[in-house]
Design a protein around this nucleic acid. Structure first.
Lengths: 351, 351
DNA sequence: CTGTTAGCGCTTTCAA
DNA sequence: TTGAAAGCGCTAACAG
């Protein structure tokens, strides 16, 4: 009942291989022939069969994407990565499918599924410093690329956020608006130990970049919960009328947050305590997303993770790898993009 | 280099078909034969090829799942649905893949991909009252099941939340703790018009169920934003020392929220206004999720959407449909499960 | 530029 | 309970 390529060939009076050549574009086909084939195709309502194609060509033209749980902020950014990857894959003739495998089973099951021929390569999202998925895929000799990077990454194909550049942009925004003393509201040490990369790198980068700009700085590592943010607000600003107002550098006049969940609680608690933002304290959220940024009032000025671009570039790099398995690893860093909210004040004295 | 079924057969001294029978379990295989085949398999490191199997059997044993954007609360619940569906599918010998197609292109592209043989059936998630994906799949004669239901659903295979039962459970919890006047913080009319089912049904159900329990009631339809929640707090409770304290029924003493984003802003604003929860107002969040419930302090007592169960039951129903395409539609309703936070007060007078 | 010819690795009658 | 044979619908040399 479904028309096959053979039917089309017969109807057009050509060989099946000619139809195949036309569809794949692998070989040139005369305009007249192409015309007849096209007519035959829609006369018969022909739809190419992806399975048969995969079997004959020994590749599926399917890319599998895997992400662990959503529990760490993630949400919007991950979704953008996925969408960007899907679209780019489609443009390049591939189907990107997401495999919702539970984290514990992923290392084994990814290799298993690719081994059974369900996909040609794997895109790993939310990769941790020591990610078992990476080891497993590497051991199986399966082509893959990770969004995020492991600790050891000399041989890793990856696309990641340029944390350093993003933090520096936030500090520059603070410097040019006259801020003098900045606090990092970062990720907890527990997460670093657990292997969440950004938590490690951000503290080092932040301190170094603040010093270079001559800013007072301090770092706090918080669990990714609103309550942790509330607690910090109480701890650091208890008894202060206006956090940044003492002028002596005793208290920060700005916060750079890299912890979406905590910053929401932090802001809410400051407001309950009677502070007004950004008059009393400027708050910038980095590696964030629009949704979190709009959860508070005033909304947060934020640097959003470039999800879509990372997804697109990941697919390109992965397909390059498929085309030339022995090329040196592709490693791409992408900076976040600024999104203006109302949480950045101007502390410059009127001239 | 990869061992094929033929290699295994040769190695075990049997016919390829025998190996196939053993793997599929379609026909009985003698214990002795089975033994020899198993040995051959792991001697050769055999892995069955899913593509070849699909081509020969004319079915992929793949289920495709599609969800539109994440913008409406969703998040955690959707993820649970997907995970539940994946696990159940695996148990039943199927691979569930998620196709991250943009909402606009989904109706067309889903049919296209299934038409090309990429999957046997489709699971639709976050289905709206008038969902073009449903029409398209129906027109293409593709087997599918929706999580959520359309307006016209007599012929639809679906699994959905039992909103009515959930709302009633929330009202019961309020009744037994002595509340007298309940406000619904629902979804906006705009969403109803746009076809988001729960928004429509919840208002009707809420009013009717409140009346039946002899509770004072009122409904507010809010956009799914924290700001909408803040505005409502100001509007309804301006000038009140304690929202539920006037006792005369002039103000509600409890809120049932079915709008995760708005309820966060609502609670925060009440706190900024100086109210204390749940002393001044009880708040229950229904069809919610743990993450939202823990975004505020006190955390919210909530009824969580039964994501995993819906996913599992959706797969079962879909595979039933595949087995018997002419059976009457399966329609399943699942109630939410309660999760205790600290936002429910007790208003009963001490006896 | 087009046709011929073998498969890709498995399933599935049909016989034995 | 097992085997032989004929494909599933397409691709990819190789020839012409």
């Amino acid at each position: 009942m479904m028309a096959t390529m053979r039917d089309v060939a017969r109807h057009a009076g050509v060989a099946p291989s000619t139809v195949s050549y036309m569809l794949s574009g692998d070989k040139p086909v005369a305009a007249a022939t192409r015309e007849r084939i096209e007519q035959a195709m829609d006369a018969l309502g022909y739809r190419p069969n992806a399975i048969a194609r995969s079997l004959a060509s020994r590749r599926t033209r399917i890319l599998a994407l895997h992400l662990p749980e959503f529990d760490v902020s993630a949400g919007e950014t991950v979704f953008e990565i996925v969408r960007g990857a899907y679209d780019r894959a489609a443009e390049r003739g591939y189907l990107l499918t997401v495999w919702p495998i539970a984290a514990e089973r992923a290392p084994q099951e990814l290799s298993e599924l690719v081994g059974r021929g369900h996909a040609d390569a794997v895109l790993l999202v939310e990769v941790e410093l020591d990610d078992p998925r990476v080891d497993s895929l590497h051991a199986s000799g399966i082509p893959f690329l990770s969004v995020g990077r492991t600790r050891e990454n000399a041989q890793l194909h990856f696309v990641d956020i340029d944390f350093e550049a993003t933090i520096d942009q936030a500090l520059e925004a603070l410097t040019t608006t006259g801020h003098r003393d900045v606090m990092l509201l970062g990720r907890s040490r527990a997460m670093e130990t657990a292997g969440y990369g950004p938590a490690v790198r951000s503290h080092e980068d932040f301190a170094r970049l603040a010093v270079r700009r001559g800013l007072g700085h301090r770092e706090h590592a918080l669990d990714p919960t609103p309550q942790a943010g509330r607690d910090l607000a109480r701890t650091v600003f208890a008894g202060a009328d206006r956090p940044g107002a003492d002028g002596t550098g005793g208290r920060p006049d700005a916060v750079v947050a890299m912890n979406d969940l905590a910053v929401v609680g932090f802001v809410n608690e400051l407001q309950v305590m009677g502070f007004e933002l950004p008059r009393d304290l400027s708050i910038l959220s980095v590696v964030s997303n629009r949704r979190t940024a709009s959860l508070t009032a005033p909304s947060l000025t934020a640097w959003q993770a470039p999800g879509e671009e990372m997804g697109r570039r990941a697919v390109d790099a992965l397909l390059d790898q498929l085309a030339d398995p022995h090329a040196p690893p592709t490693q791409v860093l992408v900076a976040c993009t600024r999104y203006d909210g109302d949480s950045l004040g101007d502390r410059r004295a009127a001239a």
